[in-house]
Nucleic acid binder design. Sequence first.
DNA 1: TAGAGGTGTCATAGT
DNA 2: CTACTATGACACCTC
Length: 644
Amino acid sequence: MTRLDRSSHSGGGHAKGSRPLNSLLACHRVAQPPSAPGSRASVQDIDLIDILWRQDIDLGAGREVFDYSQRQKEQDVEKELRDGGEQDTWAGEGAEALARNLLVDGETGESFPAQVPSGEDQTALSLEECLRLLEATCPFGENAEFPADISSITEAVPSESEPPDLQNNLLSPLLTGTESPFDLEQQWQDLMSIMEMQAMEVNTSASEILYNAPSGDPLSTNYSLAPNTPINQNVSLHQASLGGCSQDFLLFSPEVESLPVASSSTLLPLVPSNSTSLNSTFGSTNLTGLFFPPQLNGTANDTAGPELPDPLGGLLDEAMLDEISLMDLAIEEGFNPVQASQLEEEFDSDSGLSLDSSHSPSSLSSSEGSSSSSSSSSSSSASSSASSSFSEEGAVGYSSDSETLDLEEAEGAVGYQPEYSKFCRMSYQDPAQLSCLPYLEHVGHNHTYNMAPSALDSADLPPPSALKKGSKEKQADFLDKQMSRDEHRARAMKIPFTNDKIINLPVEEFNELLSKYQLSEAQLSLIRDIRRRGKNKMAAQNCRKRKLDTILNLERDVEDLQRDKARLLREKVEFLRSLRQMKQKVQSLYQEVFGRLRDENGRPYSPSQYALQYAGDGSVLLIPRTMADQQARRQERKPKDRRK
DNA sequence: TAGAGGTGTCATAGT
DNA sequence: CTACTATGACACCTC
């Protein structure tokens, strides 16, 4: 069935006297062979799904957006982040409880100070006193060259050649071989989640931004995943869903484990890469373990069996944190690594800010899209206000809630802007507006392909007299060519009013207008067809415009969400970084305080026999290691119970 | 010449 | 029920 068939039938079928329009239309429709939508339904459905998939990918939404497990992982990451905060809070509570338990254990009623061998052994110092003591001999501040400095600590670390008993003595009693496997697993899961998030970023735009850098780029060469990760720049649904897996696999590769060490050798001594104790217990209440210097904990591996890299300490190394931040910047802002590194210098001040991304092409088109939608809404509202007499726009029901901008008011009417995005080129083309701007009328397409033969003949073929070509005739020919098919028909049928009126008049005025003229049935039928087609044409234009606006808004939403995600990830990295710095400071403090403590004979306390514990009231207690051991075990059980 | 994009139109469901 | 709108689908045009 061709369009010509429809039109010719439509034209003929309506000449049936004074039947209502709908019956005419019904006749028109029934007479047409069914378009057999069902025959293609199954194939179309499959195609539609496929198309939608591809559209989603094109819009920047990877499959992980729809992948429940992927989303679940993301939620887990966020949840763990929250839990981490709670855990830290709880650690503080636990510290207080620990301090209280020094007096009376809430569970056992045990009085711990009573177990101290002698009153002199239990040395209670206020934290202020400790700090004063330290400052007196070794003042340190925020940036002081404290023994926390890598070199000094390394020198201060008891060497591996020390007697085994001394090494064991230096171990934290709470950590020696008693590290909770649950905590370790939790840390690993947390780390996995972080890496998966990184992988998601890497598998999308970051791979193009970062890894297309020249091979000599320090970023691309230093980034721990770059040399080993099979980055798929050609993102597909399948690959997008597998990104995290590849990262997980790489996590265990020796290259990854060794890379942070190589990339930040200066920080290595502070981060015991072969220790599972320090960082994995930070979130718990094991303050004794926290206070113990890393070099002490490092010896725990003599008895702790297989060594695992410190998850957060090793992989979230300083350099790697920087690179992650840089990658986030690159992802978020579309910067190249050099630009990102420049921004990184100002990172602390604007980490919470997201730069205006309106420079990106997509954002530009997005804003244009919103403005284009607003043009229709504003014009439609204007037309509705004037609809009592004559609606210039007709019943344009579409309105957009986008911000109102007048930018496209004129452009939208023109509709053909070569520099426009592909979405915005297809713009609303209001015949009424075109009629108001006659010089723009030629813009509209003239679909005369299915014009009724009779109408075509009478309208397009000029009478022989017109062949005498004067300028007027040429102009008339030009205007003829610009006329729409229905205008040609109306002209051929000698309809005594304009198509604009036919289409845009309110129904009452329209009927009134029809009653004023003595019109044949064919004329009435054509007029009603013109009105129906004209209204449907505007409806189709609105529909298409609305569809494009929806797509643009979705694109904008995706961009916003990606920005938020990058920002949150960046903040998380910053938090982890500051957390680690705090831990290092605490470790140094512990060392200094413990090293300056003297018993009644003026001899230093043996780290194998005593440990410092931080009480909730700010005091620091020196307790025997056996007791600290019991406390730690007791405290380790509590978080497990709490988790259940 | 094939394909993409734009447009008009029809059919149909919904308001 | 009528008038109108919204939208998928299709055909055709233009580039």
